[in-house]
């Protein structure tokens, strides 16, 4: 049973940076870190009158936090629907289907988070839950440039150690997250790795974790349409990211010929990464 999207009021909006806003809405079911929702941006705002037919679309967004019945959805403005959503105000209504998908499996005592860009969202939720469980959290977080960073203060509170990398060197270390993986791993004696971000970054993290033989999980990005495993458009090899994922283990990914190589367009056609 997937029901209609549940219409909820946006209770609060937090501007994280120029491109990312976190929208807080009430939800009925308790989410697990790694879950996502299908977020319907109906573009009729709080009022019932139609403002415009388009853009109205439903997009997958990971849950970035859960507190007292409310989830946070940290959305980067990258295109039509996310742009429309960024114009919404508290009190405006959106539709939520979910929580959907599988979740991270928190293992070991010392966990390493490797995040790229807005891929930090599900990993931030994971870090909070893991921290409450008494795990030690180590974070490597990379963006192109300083202005894209978000949730830094929050991460500083829960992480034993936090390395931030920027491609242009505008903040902390210049380079990409994978440049620092090895040092960090050896010093901190990590038990498990969790990663989300650009796929080519995750591919490097996968290669690293396979070499070190450490338990690791990755949250994947594919074009999700139905969100419930029926249409098959988000398939990677034989798995549906929307239902069998979005979280996959290194053991699964090493058998995927498409990981780090191709993804699918909106029409289901092959796109080289």
């Amino acid at each position: 049973m997937i029901s209609n999207p549940r219409i909820v009021e946006i209770e609060r909006i937090k501007k994280e940076n120029d491109d990312i806003k976190t929208f807080f809405v009430r939800i009925e079911d308790k989410p697990e870190p790694g879950n996502y929702v299908m977020l319907w941006v109906p573009w009729s705002k709080g009022k019932s009158k139609r403002i415009a037919i388009e853009p109205s679309d439903q997009i997958p967004i990971s849950i970035s936090s859960f507190k007292r019945g409310k989830i946070g959805l940290s959305v980067k403005n990258v295109g039509e629907t996310t742009n429309a959503l960024h114009d919404f105000e508290p009190g405006d209504r959106i539709g939520i289907t979910g929580p959907l998908g599988n979740s991270f499996n928190i293992r070991g005592k010392k966990i390493l988070i490797v995040a790229g860009s807005v891929g930090l969202s599900p990993l931030y939720f994971l870090s909070r839950v893991a921290s409450e469980m008494g795990k030690q959290i180590y974070v490597i977080y990379g963006v192109n440039s300083k202005t894209e960073l978000f949730l830094i203060k929050e991460l500083e509170k829960i992480a034993e150690d936090l390395i931030i990398t920027t491609d242009d060197g505008s903040y902390q270390k210049k380079g990409c997250v994978t440049d620092f993986l090895s040092d960090f791993y050896d010093i901190s004696k990590i038990d498990s790795i969790y990663s989300c971000g650009p796929e080519l970054m995750m591919k490097k993290v996968l290669d690293f974790s396979l070499k070190k033989n450490v338990f690791s999980q990755f949250s994947l990005d594919r074009y999700i349409r139905c969100g419930v495993g029926l249409c098959g458009f988000c398939a990677i090899d034989g798995c549906r990211v929307c239902k069998d994922g979005p979280v996959f283990t290194s053991e699964q990914l090493k058998g995927f010929g498409e990981f780090g190589v191709v993804k699918r367009s909106k029409s289901g056609g092959v796109l080289r990464l």
């Binding site: 049973m1 029901s3 029926l230 909106k266 029409s267 056609g269």
Partner: peptide, 29 residues
């Protein structure tokens, strides 16, 4: 030709067993 299909929501289940879809025949051609 390739088709992108319609905007979402494209699949809902208003009541148990009642499935509605409007994919708009997305396919790669």
């Amino acid at each position: 030709e390739e088709r992108h299909g319609h905007r979402g929501p494209i699949l809902i289940e208003p009541m148990h067993g009642v499935v509605l879809n409007a994919f708009g025949l997305p396919n790669p051609g």
